[in-house]
Simulated assay, not measured.
Amino acid sequence: MKPTGYQADAGKGDEGDYKLIRDEEDHFLGLYDKPLPCFGCGIGWFSFLLGFVFPPMWYYATFLYFTNYYHKDPRERIGLATSAIAALVCTVVALIVVAVILL
Rank of each mutant, 00 (worst) to 15 (best):
K2L: 14
V97W: 08
I21R: 08
F63W: 14
T82L: 15
V93Q: 12
F28Y: 11
F63N: 08
K2H: 11
I85Q: 06
P56K: 02
C90K: 09
V53N: 00
F63L: 13
G5I: 01
K19I: 11
P55H: 02
T62C: 06
W45P: 00
Y32C: 11
E24I: 09
I43E: 07
V53R: 04
A99W: 08
I101D: 15
D33A: 14
S83P: 05
P55E: 08
G51T: 09
A8G: 09
G79R: 10
N68I: 03
Y65E: 06
I43G: 00
L103F: 14
P55S: 04
V89I: 15
F66S: 04
I21E: 08
Y70R: 04
L88K: 03
F63D: 07
L20H: 05
A61I: 10
A86W: 05
E25A: 13
C41S: 06
V53M: 03
D33I: 05
Y18E: 07
E76Q: 15
D9T: 02
L95G: 12
D33N: 12
Y6H: 10
E76H: 12
D26S: 12
I43Y: 08
K34L: 08
C41K: 09
D14P: 01
L102D: 13
L64P: 04
V89A: 14
I85V: 15
K19A: 07
Y69M: 09
F63V: 05
T4V: 11
Q7K: 12
P35Y: 00
G79F: 02
A61L: 04
E15G: 02
A10N: 01
R75D: 08
F52L: 03
F28C: 06
Y18W: 11
K34W: 11
N68F: 14
M1V: 04
C38M: 15
A10I: 04
Y70T: 03
H71P: 00
Q7H: 02
H27M: 11
L95I: 02
R75H: 00
P37N: 05
K72N: 14
Y60V: 13
T82P: 02
A61F: 10
S83M: 05
F54K: 01
I78P: 05
G40I: 02
L102Y: 13
H71N: 11
L49N: 03
T91W: 05
G42S: 12
E15M: 00
P35F: 00
G16A: 04
G42V: 06
A81S: 13
T82S: 15
L36R: 06
G51R: 06
V93T: 09
L50C: 07
V97F: 05
I85G: 12
F46A: 13
I85M: 15
P3F: 07
P55I: 03
G40Q: 00
L31I: 15
A87W: 11
L49M: 03
R77H: 13
K34Y: 10
P55L: 02
D17R: 01
C41Y: 03
K19W: 14
V93W: 12
A84D: 07
P35L: 01
L103K: 15
L20E: 05
P35M: 03
D14W: 01
Y18L: 15
A86Y: 05
V89T: 14
